[in-house]
Every structure is written in C-alpha cells, then in structure tokens.
Amino acid sequence: MHDLRVLGMAVERPELMAPTCELTAEALEVFTEEVTFRALLVDPAGGGRALDYTLWACADPEDTICEDASQRLLLAEGTTTAGELSVPIRPGATVLPDGSLLLDKVRQADPYQGYGGLRMPLVLHVRAGDEAVYAMKRMVFSCPAVPGMAANQQPVLQGLTLEGAAWEEGELPTLRGEGPFVVRANDVSALEESYVVPGLRQESVSLKEAWVITWHATLGEFNPEETGGADFNGEPGRHRTEWEPPEKDAVEQEVTFWAVVRDGRGGSSWLIRKARWAP
C-alpha cells in the first residue's frame, strides 16, 4: 500500500441508544450527545505532507459522498497529517437550513423508516496533491424497540502475535527472508457480543458479532487480507493471516502494519505495529 487511503473510521460511542422509542426530550438528550469521530489515515508515499479534510453528515445512505447540499451539514474541516484523525462532533443535534432535524431526514430517507435503527452517513473527504478519497461510515442511533436490546460496545483487539510471539506496540521485531510470516490476533471470541434486533418476520432476531479484521502493510501483502466474519453458511473464521514480503526489488526497511477490526454493527478500532524486514 503506497497511496493515500482511509483504512478505518469509528465513532466513540459506536451506538447512541435512547431510553425510549418516543421522540421525547430524554431521547433527544442521548441522540444529541457529543461523540468522538476517528479516522485512520495513511499516506506512506506522502512524506508527511499535509492532508486537507472535510467531514459531512447527510441524510441519504445512497448518497455516498454527501453530494446533496440540501440534506447535508458540515461537521468539521481542516488540515492534518497521516495517522489518526480525531474530531469531536454532535451530528444528532444538527439542524438543516430549512429548520428540520437531520436525524428526521435520515429516518425519511431510510426505506425501513428507522425500523432497524437510524444510520446517519458521515462522509470524510481527504485530499492531498492530486489524490483524494471519499470515505463513508454510518453513525448508529437506536432505541430499545424489542426486549433485550443494548447499545453496542466498541470492539477492541487484545493484541497480536507474529510468528507465534507476542507483538506489542512499540516493539520492532526483525523479520528475514521471503516468509510468509504468520500473524494472528489474540482470541476475541469472548468479546464478541450477543445482541438482539427487531425482526422482520418475528418480533426479534438473536445475533452474535463475528468480528472482521482487515490487514494492511506498507510493504508486501497479507494473505488473506481479511479474516474472521461469518460466512453465508454461518461459520466464523479464524484470525490467522500470513504476511508475504515482495519477491524482488525490495530493500531492508521498517514496515508498518495495521489491523482494523469491525464488529459488523458500526463499531471499529485498530492496532498499529512495526517490524524491520530484511531480504
């Protein structure tokens, strides 16, 4: 990976759950809380250049770049550098120029009218030189529509291993040769939450998170690039992958690795590790 990329986006807290499904002052108080928006920006070939960014909230999930000016609001803009961008936002409190609450527009644009919760698109536009990328994530607002519902907790990885040894932040293990080098995430099965959502045919449906980790590096490639998750057949995968250095034309260097975890319901976080690799 060499060019400007957004590898992950998260909102802390990942889900704002009102105490009631009526639009009361109590519910609005939760929905309008301040949250922290985070984005993992990488620009390996940028040499530390400045990245311009704009963060919008809009109503229509089909509008993947928040293009409709009548249904979007600017949450933040500025200049940053590669790494983690962190911005406090209050998108639930945003009001459109016509005086309507953006959240209400989100509900209207949702084909399910908010039945499965409201998902407000947050679109980050990052630019540097002649490179640009739009990145979208949905911020989740919900209420206890059926018994047993609880707000989502952020998924957090419990560490990684490299070739069977613990791989801590700040360490710089040395890897030699063509590999492949086995990377694993420590067992997270106990952290994967069981949860309940409103059903379309029955009152409710019971689900369990199947975290997905996506693996990235500034050199070589991971195989597979994504681990975990549940298949169509409902079987979760193992968080085991192999990092393969390039077969030729690479010199000894420090390599940065990213592991981004998603819980499949809006929660996300990431780990960053480094290693020195020599052919």
């Binding site: 399910y112 499965g116 989740v140 059903g199 045919r201 689900l207 369990k208 549940a230 169509f232 319901r265």
Partner: peptide
C-alpha cells in the same frame, strides 16, 4: 435450516454479517 439472513429476517447493517440464530 439456515442462519437467519439479513434483509429478510432483520434489517442488516452494511458490512460483515453476524452469526445469526438458525
């Protein structure tokens, strides 16, 4: 017998599917 699919049994969240009740 199948894991309850999103879109027919519940409103799915985009991205990875959860482990669903059968």
């Amino acid at each position: 017998q199948a894991p309850a699919p999103g879109g027919t049994e519940y409103v799915p969240f985009p991205g990875t599917a959860p482990v669903s009740e059968l």
